[in-house]
Design a protein around this nucleic acid. Structure first.
Lengths: 341, 341
DNA sequence: GCACATATTGCATTCGAAGTCATTAGACTC
DNA sequence: GAGTCTAATGACTTCGAATGCAATATGTGC
């Protein structure tokens, strides 16, 4: 096979490097490098020559090589549990949009079960990410591992009250307080609280919030163990309703379960919602506001939460010494138009 | 400040490199490298020493440095339009799971508008990704750019009949054929076809499929221009119904619009669905099967499509000479239990 | 014990861009 | 035109792991 000529522009075998550009432009490799760094000292003449050569060769600096020397990959890891929740795409795409503004990209890691965290972290170390956004439960030693490696870490919708680690979280307890207050003020006495998966910290926060408010108000409740899914909620409520008696209100740990609950009551038991039973959720996902459900729920201010998470992370990438910070955002009550609370 | 001692294990400032491990284990850096490469020639004795040292230092090979020399980043770019579609999280998390099996990770790029492709591609080049999965519309020259750089490219739910480029796609036309046939066989005569955004290739494929089947069957239809969103569909149908007359059936380019359609008719115009008007969608998203909608739709075999896309991409990473391949998967009819088609 | 094949090992180099430093060109002053 | 000062430039080194190659160790058969 013929030897590859250095200045054979046709050969698509190798992508152009800064040396190729330098040669074509008649300058040194250093000059090329400087042209792609804002604020570097380059004369207009050189820059023009270099840029033209770069265009001609389709040159883009190799982020891998750059990352090696600058020790900045401009990549952050986003670690989430496999997506059952409907707000996942919204969060992910907002995160991506925010990071992109700063030239940062997302390397995605999804967990099949929360126990995979260790394995995922090993992968994360290899990629020299600049930071981590975690929407998953970490153990203390996993958090320690991030700190030892000086990799900024922001939890999304998880809080560790006893650990000095940053987080952005919706105020689940406060949200439930608002919901419960509304329902209790309306005179409801018998409640069902439907929890999400037992290993979900978010569900626990919401459920505990609701329960303690109900207790404080001195009204009774019963707990159903759901798993965030429509079908499980549907089945649970279907079974429950077969027994004959109905609660005044059902508080679900997320919107999807609330919709399952509504459908079970409405379609299998001819119960009028919200006249006979009032159902509330949490999240503010799209379908919750659809006419068929018109759900009363707490809408998480995802936009602001994502913005906060990104800002906090990038600040800490710049200055790793910044102290941890926990930010708690109140949700907005989205009142179903036919609801009365 | 004190000079950093080479063997100061306490200092968390720098992560361990293969040289650190080599020193601690009393071997050369090459030996360390070989220990982390499967199939390399290393004695058990050396491997043990190295692995112990690596553990002690928390060493993980630096994927950035490795990528530089091997010209493999083990990263693939996933390019999608900003997620309005409900199947997005499902696809993304399945993609991730499949790739992870092969030690490949996803670098995420989302487009705010389809015109951002150029900008995104520039980012993509910088990261030396091994391949690209694109769920977005590319121009011919953008496709060419990938080919020139020899970066394998697989389109997801986009086809380019005239270009030799690989794709995995749901057979939208075939799906619409099934739906239309069912509806026509039932005796329906007046149809509405609701399209998605005009720049969406998927919408066009579905809409055209439906229209040509309707024409072939000799039944009339009217076209409404939607945008895949619930609200727009709701408003369009609401307006339409105000005029007084109703079609026999409405064919929507996706499930979300079908649900908006159902809600508008049912809640604003007291139309019985499916008795008075039959509504069908496309996608098979979660809420479509919920009792309130119980939608007749074509479910895309996402699991298989994702598997195919991943396999095809990785094959082409291994052997860039493999010819392009277009795979078309038929969707499954999901019949609403109360539907009659 | 010797000749030889095979398995391990280390040295030196490589990938591509960025930073350090010394040098040079250019602008400006008097 | 000589003397300063700054801006621009290039040679060289660096980041961390992988690899070709040569050197050494180990093992085998006689």
């Amino acid at each position: 096979m013929a030897k590859n000529l250095t200045n054979n522009k046709i050969s698509p075998k190798k992508r152009a490097t800064s040396y190729d550009v330098a040669e074509l432009a008649g300058v040194s490799q250093s000059a090329v490098s400087r042209c792609f760094k804002t604020g570097a000292s380059v004369s207009k003449k050189t820059r023009d020559k270099v840029m033209q050569a770069a265009n001609e060769l389709g040159y883009q600096p190799n982020a891998i090589a750059r990352g090696l020397i600058t020790r900045r990959s401009n990549i952050v890891a986003v670690i989430t549990t496999a997506a059952t929740t409907l707000s996942y795409p919204e969060v992910l795409s907002k995160l991506n949009a925010e990071f992109e503004k700063h030239g940062v990209h997302i390397l995605l890691f999804t967990l099949h079960s929360e126990s995979d965290v260790d394995e995922v972290l090993n992968q994360v170390w290899q990629y020299q990410v600049d930071g981590i956004i975690a929407a998953a439960q970490f153990t203390d030693s996993q958090i320690d591992a991030c700190m030892n490696r000086q990799i900024p870490l922001i939890f999304f919708n998880r809080v560790y009250p006893d650990i000095s680690v940053s987080s952005v979280c919706c105020d689940h307890a406060e949200g439930e307080r608002i919901l419960v207050k509304g329902l209790v003020d309306k005179g409801h006495k018998n409640f069902i609280v439907m929890a999400g998966p037992q290993d979900s910290a978010v569900s626990t926060a919401r459920t505990d919030g609701a329960v303690s408010q109900l207790n404080a108000a001195g009204v009774s409740h019963q707990l159903l163990q759901g798993d965030y899914s429509y079908q499980t909620a549907f089945d649970l409520v279907d079974d429950y309703a077969k027994s004959g008696d109905l609660p005044d209100a059902i508080i679900c740990a997320n919107d999807v379960m609330a919709m399952g609950t509504i459908d079970a009551l409405r379609h299998h038991h001819q119960v009028n919602i919200p006249e006979q039973v009032e159902v509330v959720g949490f999240d503010g996902v799209g379908p919750a506001s659809w006419q068929s459900y018109d759900l009363t729920t707490i809408k998480q201010p995802l936009e602001r939460m994502v913005e906060a998470a990104v800002t906090m992370l990038l600040e800490r990438v710049e200055d790793p010494e910044l102290p941890a910070e926990k930010r708690l955002f109140a949700g907005n009550l989205a009142r179903g138009t036919s609801a009365v609370i």
